[in-house]
């Protein structure tokens, strides 16, 4: 067979093919939402519930510490919410992917002549539309609780950055969805990863009163730099350093996790 080995070639999928396949799979994921509108509940309710909870539970006391009151905290926490919300939504992608594997449909996809990446990219793309939807809800709630959008450009830039960062994190959750057997385990692991990152950051409260060891963590936590960038963009203050650090994290995470996710997907038995 060694003579034959030299001449054996496989087809390549052209770019237009990849786009077509990704489009067909995105349509599938969008039809899921139409078929099951409840799956949008988290995107609608989470921004409302979390904003109301944080503003009214912690708003008074943290606001005082900030040298103002309730209104002061609203201005502080809404940019943080932008960072937090896309993160929380991004982990749903792993759960959904794991469910796909446990049904037979993934066998079907993997026995079709399509690029393995398009299955993953379609999932990420649809998740991004969900995030943008949740961000819209968040900004409406924000205005209702008294947030002043002085800088619309800054707001859109913050939302954009948060979504970009969350998409890079999604590759990590996709990997979890591929390697773990139960969707529930994927969700639990996702929370275990997200909760410390979200709360051990400058998202909900300034870090200056935290103990030193925690401050070291929060300083390096990309969610801190993401929240601080959003704050700077929407309210004012220095942005450049935090922005670059966030972008660098995002690029690095995607560069590492996207190939890992695709590889794990390709070689899953």
């Amino acid at each position: 067979m060694s003579a034959a080995a030299a001449t054996v070639t496989d087809t390549r999928i052209p770019l237009r093919g990849h786009l077509r396949h990704t489009g067909a799979l995105m349509r599938r994921n969008l039809l899921w939402i139409r078929q099951d509108p409840e799956s949008m509940m988290d995107a609608v309710m989470m921004p409302i519930v979390f904003t109301l909870l944080f503003v009214y539970v912690f708003g008074g006391s943290v606001g005082q510490a900030l040298g103002g009151g309730h209104d002061e905290y609203v201005q502080y926490v809404i940019p943080g919410m932008i960072a937090m919300m896309s993160m929380t939504l991004s982990q749903g992608v792993g759960t959904g992917f794991c469910q796909d594997f446990n049904s037979g449909v993934m066998d079907r996809f993997r026995s079709l002549p399509i690029g393995r990446g398009s299955v993953l990219i379609a999932k990420v793309a649809v998740e991004i539309t969900r995030m943008i939807f949740a961000m819209t809800v968040l900004m409406i709630v924000a205005v209702l609780v008294g947030f002043d959008i002085d800088n619309w450009g800054g707001m859109f830039a913050s939302v954009g950055l948060s979504v970009v960062f969350a998409s890079s994190i999604m590759w990590g959750f996709l990997t979890l969805g591929v390697i773990m057997k139960e969707a529930q385990a994927v969700q639990q692991t996702g929370f275990l990863i997200l909760i410390p990152l979200q709360f051990g950051s400058s998202i909900f409260a300034p870090t200056s009163s935290m103990p030193d060891w925690l401050q070291t963590f929060t300083d390096y936590n990309p969610l801190s730099t993401l929240a601080d960038t959003a704050r700077g963009l929407m309210i004012g203050g220095p942005v450049a350093h935090d922005l670059w650090v966030t972008v660098a994290w995002s690029v690095a995470i995607t560069a590492v996790m996207a190939p890992v996710a695709i590889h794990k997907f390709r070689t899953k038995n």
């Binding site: 496989d10 449909v105 066998d107 079907r108």
Partner: peptide
């Protein structure tokens, strides 16, 4: 093994579990 994409062009598969998307 060496020509999986070519192989996929010429096969059809019906698994033990219906491999269709239940929600569609």
């Amino acid at each position: 093994v060496r020509q999986p994409r070519q192989t996929r062009r010429v096969i059809g598969l019906t698994g033990q579990y219906a491999s269709v998307d239940e929600k569609l």
